[in-house]
Amino acid sequence: MAEKNMKSAKILVFSTEKISDPAIDMAGLLKLHYPPTVYTITVPCSSGIKSRWIMHAYEKGFDGVFIAADGSDCIFGESCTEKTGHIVSRTHELMKQNKIEPARLKMAAICSVCSESFVKQIKSFNEYLLKNSNS
C-alpha cells in the first residue's frame, strides 16, 4: 500500500445520492480518468456528514477527504451549503488539535453534471496530497 501511495493518494470522497454521485458516475461514463485510490461513500446530503467520520478516515490512513457537496442544488434546501461549510470548519478545528494539516480536507460543490469539475478537483487534490506527504 505504501508503494501505491507514491503514485496516488488515498482519498475518501463523500458524495450525495441525488446530486454529486450522479456526476461521479458520469465521469466514469465519459471515461474521464482519475486515480483509482479515490473511494466514494454516498450519503443523502453533504450537510449530514459527521466530523468523527472524517477524523476516522485520517486515523485509518486516508491521505485526504473530499466532500462533494450538493451546493445550491441540494434537494433538502438552501441551508445545505452553509451547514456543510460549518462541518468543514468544525472538522478543521479538530484536525488542528490532532496535528493534521487542515488542507487535507477539501470541499467543493459538485452539481449533477459537474463530472469534469469533479475530476479536475480530485486530480489537483491528489497532486497536493502527494506533494505534501512524506513530510
Binding site: 443523502p44 446530503c45 450537510s47 449530514g48 456528514i49 466530523s51 433538502f76 445545505c80 451547514k83 468544525r90
Partner: peptide, 12 residues
Amino acid sequence: GCGMCLPVCPTD
C-alpha cells in the same frame, strides 16, 4: 432523511 441534524448534535 437528509441527516442535517447529525453533525450538529453535541453529544452525537
